[in-house]
Amino acid sequence: MHQFGTNAYHVVVVGGSFAGLMAAQELEKQAAHLNVYITVIDKREASFHNISSLRALVDPSLAPKLWIPFDRALQGKRSRIIQAAVAEVHPHHLVLSDGRHMTFDILLLATGSDYPSPAKIDSLYVQPGIEETRRHQRHIKQAQRVLIIGGGAVGVELAGEIASEYPDKTVTLVQAKHQLLPDEYHPGFREKARQALEKLGVHVELNDRVIVPGSQPIRDCPDTRTLRTVNGLEIDSDLQFLCIGTVVNTPYLHTLGEDDGVLTEPATGYIKVLPTLQLEYPRYRHIFAIGDCNNLPGAKLAYKAESQAKVVAKNVRRMLERISHSEDASNAKLATYKDPGAVMAVTIGRDITYNAFPFANLIGWRDVARKGVDLFLPKRYQQMNIPYPK
């Protein structure tokens, strides 16, 4: 069938962040009785814990800890993680950016999304990535007036981190909507976030939008300038952060040969999936998409990605069990993903964690409340089977 020999099955996972790595780890457990080889492909040298990336901008000790080695993440003898980029996806093989071909029986796409630095780092290697974070640290420390464009979770948390660590700086956050954070969250939760930021001294401007001239885009470096908003407000700043503009990582899908709009949503680029997390298009039911790259509604959050990963691992195992008995995998009874609801923890500096749950709005609820303390970084090390560095 492929390089692993007769009666062996190859599951390839593209993307080694929350969704992809969790799916591979779960599949190792669930498919241990099957002759399954698992390959995780990730473009980075190590796992980057972006949940802590904003705290690292004001806490220099965190910069090297954001990068967690892949070495022990998978425990099985038939599992591996390789650093590579996927250039093309075909019905039963991949083409990597270096020209290598890799066949698969089942494919899991967990390629996530890109977001402006520093929330997500551009670097693919550990040392340059650490230097990128440290460069942002220096810029923030030197600036006196910081402008944050965008009031989603990233903008809110970035403003909170800077204002908490540097109370003498002028921090302005501009949000185009009438409240902060995504619309799916309760208005009371969103209002608490605004109040917390203003208590820290952040100037929050709602229902307004910064006009950024096309000839002078927001640069990834200090830049003293005056920007005007749609409502006529003039904002002076020494450093600007763009906290909008998520881009889904799905350009590799064009080689599957379908017209635009068949596999992905034209407006967003999200991959269309069924409740089983298989691709919606009937020809590719052996391909799954999980995490930030699929078109399931709601905010794209790590806990949802991991929840999807567990469903996919179960479904892949059931399909492989059918195949191993020479039966049609399409007849396997597959589990469907059920959204756990709009659960969200937003940290506003080190001391405040606001939690939104489907049933209530609470402050400091069990494990979620620890986000403001450690940003789930020790837990991520534990998931990767690596001791947390002191």
Results as ranks from 00 to 15, higher is better:
Q142I: 03
I51F: 09
N355H: 02
Y9Q: 03
K77M: 05
D122T: 14
D122G: 12
G76K: 02
V316L: 14
T255R: 05
V86L: 09
L96V: 10
A329H: 07
Y284D: 14
V248N: 00
H286R: 04
G372A: 15
V204I: 11
F357Q: 00
E306I: 13
S97G: 09
T347Y: 02
N385G: 00
A19I: 03
Y115D: 02
T255W: 04
V204Q: 04
L107C: 03
L158K: 01
I287Y: 02
E306T: 15
R138E: 15
I149D: 14
P69E: 00
K333Q: 13
N231M: 13
H93N: 12
A309H: 00
R134D: 13
L54A: 07
T111A: 08
Y252E: 13
V373Y: 10
E157A: 02
I106M: 08
P217L: 08
L109I: 15
E161D: 15
D238R: 03
E165M: 11
A110I: 11
V343I: 15
A63D: 02
Y303M: 11
A19N: 04
Q30C: 05
F359V: 12
I41A: 08
N331C: 06
T347R: 05
L147G: 10
L181N: 01
T353D: 14
E45C: 04
F70N: 00
F288M: 06
F48H: 03
F4Q: 14
A24T: 10
I348L: 13
F189C: 04
L173H: 07
F359D: 15
A329L: 10
A23P: 09
R190C: 04
R318V: 09
